[in-house]
Lab assay of single mutants.
Amino acid sequence: KSSGQLMAEWGLDDVDYLFSEEDYHTLTNYKAFSQFLRPLIAKKNPKIPMSKMMTVLGAKWREFSANNP
């Protein structure tokens, strides 16, 4: 499932962030990516359980990696 599908299924607000060329150069591993995106997700979904946060971050990382030029 996509991150958007997961968040909709769980009734969470998705984070629409348009990644720049620079993001693809600086966010080169999962740790850097999650440190960048986790606060954005948490801000829109302050009560998100950690298990769902990790699942969403994993899905967003897969999508980000697939779109990386």
Rank of each mutant, 00 (worst) to 15 (best):
A8R: 15
S20R: 13
Y17M: 06
Q35M: 10
Y17N: 07
M7R: 01
N68A: 12
E9A: 11
M53L: 04
K1C: 12
H25Y: 14
E9T: 12
K47S: 08
L27Q: 00
G4I: 14
R38S: 13
L40I: 15
K44S: 03
S51E: 06
S3D: 03
D13G: 09
D13A: 15
M7N: 04
F19C: 03
L27F: 11
W10L: 15
T26G: 10
V15S: 06
I41Y: 02
A32F: 04
Q5W: 02
Y30V: 05
K31I: 09
H25K: 15
K1I: 05
R38L: 15
L12C: 09
L6K: 06
Y30F: 10
T26H: 13
Q5D: 09
Q35N: 12
T26R: 12
G11P: 01
D13F: 13
Y30Q: 09
K1W: 03
I48A: 05
Y17D: 03
D23S: 10
A66P: 04
L12H: 06
F64H: 01
I41L: 15
M50R: 11
L6V: 07
S20K: 14
S51T: 10
F33L: 01
L27N: 00
K47L: 02
L12S: 03
G11M: 05
S20E: 09
N45R: 00
D14P: 05
F19A: 03
D16Y: 05
L18M: 13
S34T: 15
S34P: 14
N45C: 06
E22F: 06
K47G: 15
S3A: 07
K1L: 04
M7H: 01
A66T: 05
S20Q: 12
G4Q: 15
L57Y: 00
S20W: 01
K1N: 08
Y30P: 07
A8G: 09
R62L: 10
T28N: 11
S20D: 12
K44P: 02
T28I: 06
L6Y: 07
S20A: 10
L57V: 12
M50S: 04
K31D: 13
D23W: 00
Y30T: 02
E21M: 09
W10D: 12
D23Y: 00
R38G: 10
S20T: 15
Y24H: 12
L27S: 00
S34K: 12
G4Y: 15
F33V: 00
G4L: 14
P69T: 03
E21K: 12
Y24K: 09
E22D: 13
K47N: 06
D14R: 06
H25D: 13
A32N: 10
V15F: 08
L6C: 02
F33E: 00
E22C: 06
Y30W: 10
E22A: 12
N45T: 01
L18N: 15
V15I: 14
M50D: 13
S2M: 11
V15M: 05
L12P: 05
A8L: 14
E9L: 13
